[in-house]
Design a protein around this nucleic acid. Sequence first.
DNA 1: CATGAATGAGCATTCATTCAT
DNA 2: TATGAATGAATGCTCATTCAT
Lengths: 219, 219, 219, 219
Amino acid sequence: MTGRRRESGAGTEPRPKRRGASGDKRERILSAAIRVFAQNGFYSTRVSEIATAAGVADGTIYLYFENKDHVLISIFEDRIGKLIEVMRRTVKESTDPREQLQRVIALQLGQVEENRDLAEVVTVNLRQSSTLLKQYATPLFVKYLEVIAGVISDGQKQGVFRTDLSPRVAARALYGGVDGIMLTWALGEPEPKALRKAAQQFTTLFLRGLSPEAAPDAE
Amino acid sequence: MTGRRRESGAGTEPRPKRRGASGDKRERILSAAIRVFAQNGFYSTRVSEIATAAGVADGTIYLYFENKDHVLISIFEDRIGKLIEVMRRTVKESTDPREQLQRVIALQLGQVEENRDLAEVVTVNLRQSSTLLKQYATPLFVKYLEVIAGVISDGQKQGVFRTDLSPRVAARALYGGVDGIMLTWALGEPEPKALRKAAQQFTTLFLRGLSPEAAPDAE
Amino acid sequence: MTGRRRESGAGTEPRPKRRGASGDKRERILSAAIRVFAQNGFYSTRVSEIATAAGVADGTIYLYFENKDHVLISIFEDRIGKLIEVMRRTVKESTDPREQLQRVIALQLGQVEENRDLAEVVTVNLRQSSTLLKQYATPLFVKYLEVIAGVISDGQKQGVFRTDLSPRVAARALYGGVDGIMLTWALGEPEPKALRKAAQQFTTLFLRGLSPEAAPDAE
Amino acid sequence: MTGRRRESGAGTEPRPKRRGASGDKRERILSAAIRVFAQNGFYSTRVSEIATAAGVADGTIYLYFENKDHVLISIFEDRIGKLIEVMRRTVKESTDPREQLQRVIALQLGQVEENRDLAEVVTVNLRQSSTLLKQYATPLFVKYLEVIAGVISDGQKQGVFRTDLSPRVAARALYGGVDGIMLTWALGEPEPKALRKAAQQFTTLFLRGLSPEAAPDAE
DNA sequence: CATGAATGAGCATTCATTCAT
DNA sequence: TATGAATGAATGCTCATTCAT
């Protein structure tokens, strides 16, 4: 990716993998990275900037992450991984597919509302199109889509969603819609209400779009 | 003789040497850039790679573009600018807002189907989060949204679209959906049919989402 | 964005960074630069040549100097700054203006005799006529002239120097004479004696030129 | 020197040497070069800038000069060569060595007064310390010094100048003094009177410096 | 003779990564 | 563990020079 010094090949990985001990420092680096990546983008961010923001020395970064690429990768793995976990739990809290979708949408935008920088990183930096990132981001993306598609598929079986749509296509549409809303919010005006309102409107739009025939969106 | 092009070769060189209509060379650079940006991403692409792909010398790039950044910027201005123009014309070809939206969606995905690399560049590289790019991409994005929002707004006035949704929010959702489909297609399997089918499904999803009929969305 | 070269971007960062201990390295770079600048001239010297001559990596130069220009600037500031300091002290060691001038001349040419390269850099590279250099070299030059002019002015008040000459013009003449001698010596034959002899002769020439006695310069 | 493309070795010179015919254009390029060299210095001046200032195309420069280096070289050869010629004639116009020196000094500073840019180029750009320039500038410099030294030597023989000074050292001192005055004038305030006054003062300084014993400067 | 679009070698500078402390 | 000075490979951009027209 960055390919400055050594190749970040797939092979031998001298991964230091700090976990228990001073995992605190690892966390500080990660959240600092989210901040600066959101500010300047991945490529324009210097490792030294992350270090400064995290209050550690440049070299310390390399005790917790293989290289700069893996800092970004870890953000996805940690944050998106957690999001998917929470999404799964959220889905189980209800049996009504319509309500499940509504909650999932609210969950994503809610998390983003709490951490605007994360939104920027997720929507903007997710797409740096490096082979390396595709490698790490795509699997997560697939898992994400599977959760959504699962809900839709269930809804179709239960008869609450129209059946002439592919659950995966619909899932992508949901992802795209949420992403589009996050993007315009992250780049535009920081009004929290706007985000929540947009989320609500998108939910009704999407749910009616999935409704079988012209059935009412009764709630 | 500094050995300009290939040494030795007697008459093997067709010597493309454009003259006058050098707009041709600009175009060659641009389409070459789309190809390599799609392949490696903006930041990982070397200027020399663009030059090689375009069949020109490195320095020639700088006769047509201020710097590497402006090559990407020009892609947006040229390609997206044209897309918006065509979208505007397409919208005028019909008076039925539903049909207008359908055509707009088909138009975008159709263009992308012809040039998969463009899809990659537009969806992936649009988001490099540089101040510079925001500066150039955002205005275009706004114009794009205005066209869509205009159609939706018209539809609401004509009574064919529900009126409880903000045209702008809906426009973002449409953008996001199209983008999500483009993204998964660009990154995933290159089956053309999949794209068209997804486009069709997304259209019906979106149109029903906008439909006014049925009962109210309890609010 | 890509920001490779100068970029007047965010903060005005004159980064002299390292301090203290490795001031040694700064000194090594500086004296290496004097050597290679004398050899090839400022513009024809590559940063990598300075680095090699100093036994450091290319990048190390930039830990101690803002850029190549500032390496040259620092040479002036350091070396000429020191010279002016020594000149001031030297002047105070005597109360006889004639002796003061003699010592000042001997001092300059003596220093140069020890470091022929410095002579080359000072006389030759001082005049690269870049806005930047004018900015840095001129103030030093003014200070230099002030020391000389001060001595001459004192001599006039004491009655040992003729009073029909502007101290500043005479100071420039002294500078010019010394510079001319240094230049021809630096460019020509490296015989040390020649330099000392020339210095002595120039001193008597200049001192008699300043002498008050005799008749007017009738014209 | 510039060493971009080919070596400007001493050997094969495909010198187009326009002279009679459109020597006009050659002259325009030369005077344009003096202007821009004075403004930005030799190295910071682009060939295209010379061309623009001269009102010709970039490539045209190469019809009259071998390369950029030779534009500067030609300035010296033409302008300084002429100066030396005029100096020789001027010297012959008088038989009094004192008057000869005075005229020579006035001549140089007078010429410079007419063309301030030339002063800048001669004093500043003469010293770019490139092997190439040394090659061309040094011989001219020697000729220059010979004229001055000749006058001084004559004066010594005639008994009007002290004999304990080497004519060559005195000549260098004269050169240096004139150069120092030109330099401060070229870089500093553009008041013409200041130059003339300084010239006059320097002349009296120098002549008294050369005077035998304390004899009157009777004329 | 003149032009100026095109060339491409060359270099200043950056910054991810290392490693002695 | 932590540090941050040092490294040096990598690359965007410049500009002298060429040559087809």
